[in-house]
Write a protein that binds this DNA or RNA. Sequence first.
DNA 1: CTGTTAGCGCATTCAC
DNA 2: GTGAATGCGCTAACAG
Lengths: 337, 337
Amino acid sequence: MKRTIYTIAADLGLSPGTISKVLNQTGNVSSDTRERVLKYIKEVGYVPVTSARMLKSKRSYTIGVVFSEELHIGLEHSFFSSILQHFKNYVEKEGYELSFIVSRLGKNKMSYYEWCMNKKVDGVYIVVGDYDDQGIYELASMNIPVVSTDIIIPGIHSIISDNVLGINISLDYLFNEQQVKSVGMITGPQSSKAFVERFQAYKSYFRTHHKDINDAFIVEAESFGFTSGYNAVYKLLEQTKTLPEALLVGSDDIALGVLKALQEQKIRIPEDIQIIGFDDIAFARHFTPSLTTIRQDREAIAHKAARSLLTLINHKSEKVEALTLMPVTLVKRDTTK
Amino acid sequence: MKRTIYTIAADLGLSPGTISKVLNQTGNVSSDTRERVLKYIKEVGYVPVTSARMLKSKRSYTIGVVFSEELHIGLEHSFFSSILQHFKNYVEKEGYELSFIVSRLGKNKMSYYEWCMNKKVDGVYIVVGDYDDQGIYELASMNIPVVSTDIIIPGIHSIISDNVLGINISLDYLFNEQQVKSVGMITGPQSSKAFVERFQAYKSYFRTHHKDINDAFIVEAESFGFTSGYNAVYKLLEQTKTLPEALLVGSDDIALGVLKALQEQKIRIPEDIQIIGFDDIAFARHFTPSLTTIRQDREAIAHKAARSLLTLINHKSEKVEALTLMPVTLVKRDTTK
DNA sequence: CTGTTAGCGCATTCAC
DNA sequence: GTGAATGCGCTAACAG
């Protein structure tokens, strides 16, 4: 049977308005009737129709998700999927659903902002964004709660791992504990902010510690994946005859490709060269040799993002710090001594 | 500026009903005014508010997605995420959005069916389902279009890879081309239909070809992941002193764990033992040695599922074949000779 | 504390 | 081929 607040109001001898009130925990209802309504609702399994509620209240209990596909990073990308999954779990507990923001739907195109208006999303979560994507800036300038975990945009609260800390930990470990003399770096494409930060941190560490940077020990991978790491090694080999004693790699995905190429060249890890990655993806542990890496706490990032966004949604006025740096840790495995 | 069909009707000196008609391609409108409306709409970037449309029309242009979390298979699982991504791309082109079906949202619980009613989804796509999940059977029995790509439920159109074919191809290759004498199997947990099918196919191949099955060569992995494959090898080693010449593994995730354990035991691949996996996940190619495996065409599966579901949605009466078997292929790499 | 009422923005009869 | 009226199910403001 089809139920509306009218039918259940009739069944209980109440008025629809009262039912609405207990549903929304607004207005005054005697705890007596509230109990009665709640009990009956549970009994018959009534759930309010979302669209009607949205139409009236301007709220949708839905969070729009930007998961950029420009970069060809789809849901397959385990790092971001994992963050999204944790985020989803968290907000669902608070009664929010997720909806992917798309700019083309069938025939009509619309901006992110238009989409948000039409779906009446309560907030937006940018999981993976593209700096060239104008839609994001437009979003940031409108009065709608937004958080991001990948890119930093003025006006948007971002939660990102402390890249500088990660690089510093790695370098300290290599230079001080391992007494390594030289450390090169294979960075990811500098179109991505995270890779830029990590590379900058690497350079400024050398500067601060009065060490010389050997440009021959530095390679920028052409892309994000395994293959680009693999190729980067051959580029490195062209640049220098003698390898550095250790190598920092911009991401685990790339690092695993690096390992493969190194093994192919019969270069022993960690004896001849030590490797430290970044991210701690699932496979980092499984690869042979298992990868020493900087671990990003995906769950902590996702939950922090969720909490911040919900705060913004519920107290629009309240300022949430514009940038939250999440701590990272060094996970020592077999690619370092 | 806020636009509704009323404002644009006023702007054009028409009535809201007319606007609605051209938007929905229903009723009679002179091609002249239709053009005019369409042009103006594009110009000002108007898009109808979803919730209002849903409320009245009973359609949402939304597809509910069941992505079971009971099995702890989240979005991180690359195989299913990949299928979902392809599915998403396809249906978005046709103007549909995705929405995850959840059974608990904040405080209130609801069945899949209730959720579908409230969101007024046009159809449901079961990416990963659990046979113990009663909600799925309820869905199947209701009059709502459903397709699945993981499990087979009476009344639901399923698109799945031809597991039997995959196993037969593998075994033919091993026995005939490689002239192998014995083939063992490490299967996945038999709670999953796909693993059951693959294991059954293995057994019936032996039966049909009058070969004896050596039970000592068979191990059921305890779970879906890398680690369970790793452990399975040690279980196998306990069961038999002499290994089979080849091993079929229920999935690539498990197979990679198998490789790791084998390498650890200094068992040479493919010299001492050949391995064939199933799925062809991204890492199968990257692992050392790269994994020979049965490739499932994820994109083809997703697109077929999308097409079938859209057909069901648009022609509810039309019967779509209840089960579609998708072809698989053997990808030869370094774990076979 | 509870009931009544007026829209929210659109789709769908009907008349015209 | 076009336009006015009605209602989808709910919320919010107000009246009782």
